[in-house]
Amino acid sequence: MYDKIIGLLISGTGETFYMVVVSTLISYILGIPLGIVVYVTDKNGISKNSFVNKIVGLVINLVRSIPFLILLVAILPFTRAIVGTTIGSSATIVPLVVAATPFVARMVEASLKEVDHGVVEAAQAMGSTNLQIICKVLVPEARPSLLVGMTIAFTTILGYSAMAGFVGGGGLGAIAVNYGYYRYQTGVMLTTVAMLVIIVQIFQEGGLILASKIDKRIKR
């Protein structure tokens, strides 16, 4: 009995990792460009374009305001079209990415806003193109902050992934729901919660340590 539960927890942890890491990565691949677009098209941005800014901002806010559980159900046909199924870990990645990308875009935007405008101005004065400013100034200068944002995004996505357990998602969330909630096995529920706490701790601390390590502004 215990062997079975332990085996379940190990595979559940693996699945959770898989879902969250892959979703975070894809969300960043999509969210970074989106965040950059919002930042540079802002009225004080280097490539001001209020039309694009308004549209992208609106879409981001729209998706962000839908509660995750509703979004999860609402896009089931979309998920099926992409993965071929709506249950299991891989299928959960789709709604996770859809929900997390706008969130990541806002995090990226906030990180870029932390870069001193004077540095951007200096880069412009040196004759940089906008693309050079983005790739060689904005993103590298915001790197530590982007990394801190990533740990926050990871934690949020981890929380979403647990919710997906209610509607056929995999991982620790599904175990907590199936064993802890439906079968009243409180021990299993608490164990999954403990596992989630540990994962969050590892990533949060690891991210912060890495961020301060790559940040050259801090005197050592």
């Binding site: 001193d116 004077g118 200096a122 880069a123 004065a125 040196m126 100034v137 200068e141 790197r143 050259k216």
Partner: peptide
């Protein structure tokens, strides 16, 4: 852009790239 490369500029707040070391700043 070409003309700007012919005109250097320095600022009150220096505006160096904080994540680059001295030589990489000058190389920018």
């Amino acid at each position: 852009l070409e003309a700007r490369r012919n005109m250097g500029m320095i600022f009150q707040q220096f505006n160096l790239l904080e994540q680059r070391n001295v030589i990489d700043n000058i190389c920018y």
